[in-house]
């Protein structure tokens, strides 16, 4: 994708997600971990939903997980995606627990199956942004 200009919307970090986006650019999937109960979560929530602790640290995830569920979008809701339909979108359940929205690559949409093992692919879509997509794994 880096060969040609990337035409799809590119996300922008905010204060809460800066490390997540910085990590992606370095090929790392970064999550928050509650230092009280050790549960992982995605950035965006200031406290742990379980123990309500605000004590957290950033931790690198393995980048492995399973395809929790997926859809194939046919509706043209956004002009940038209009020429791409149908395309897949997915929720991947990371080995660490959190479920992350993404696309599955290197797999025909017809071959997608819930619970299939997947691994992160770091897709540098611009100098500033790397998107974390997933592909089937062993």
């Amino acid at each position: 994708m880096a060969d040609q200009a990337y035409t799809l919307p590119i996300p922008v970090a905010d204060e809460a997600s800066q490390e997540f986006f910085d990590g992606a650019r370095e090929g790392k999937l970064m999550l928050l971990r509650c230092t009280q109960c050790q549960r992982y979560r995605l950035p965006g929530r200031e406290l742990c939903s379980d123990c309500w602790s605000t004590d957290t640290e950033w931790a690198q995830a393995t980048g492995r997980g399973k395809l929790y569920t997926f859809g194939i979008m046919h509706q043209k809701y956004h002009p940038a995606f209009a020429d791409m339909t149908p395309y897949n979108y997915a929720l991947v359940e990371l080995d660490e627990g959190p479920r992350l929205v993404t696309n599955i690559v290197e797999c025909d949409d017809d071959d997608l199956r819930t619970d299939m093992p997947v691994e992160a692919v770091f897709d540098a879509v611009s100098d500033e942004a790397t998107l974390i997509r997933f592909r089937p794994s062993e």
Binding site: L8, P9, I10, P11, V12, A13, D14, A16, S17, F20, L42, P43, G44, G71, M73, Q75, Y77, H78, P79, A80, F81, M84, Y87, Y89, A90, L100, V101, T102, N103, L131
Partner: peptide, 23 residues
Amino acid sequence: GAGYMPPGMSGLYTAFGMFGVNA
């Protein structure tokens, strides 16, 4: 619509093309 990108993690839905309640 075009040009709209919510900041932070919410932007991932837009980036990966997951729009609306149907999705």
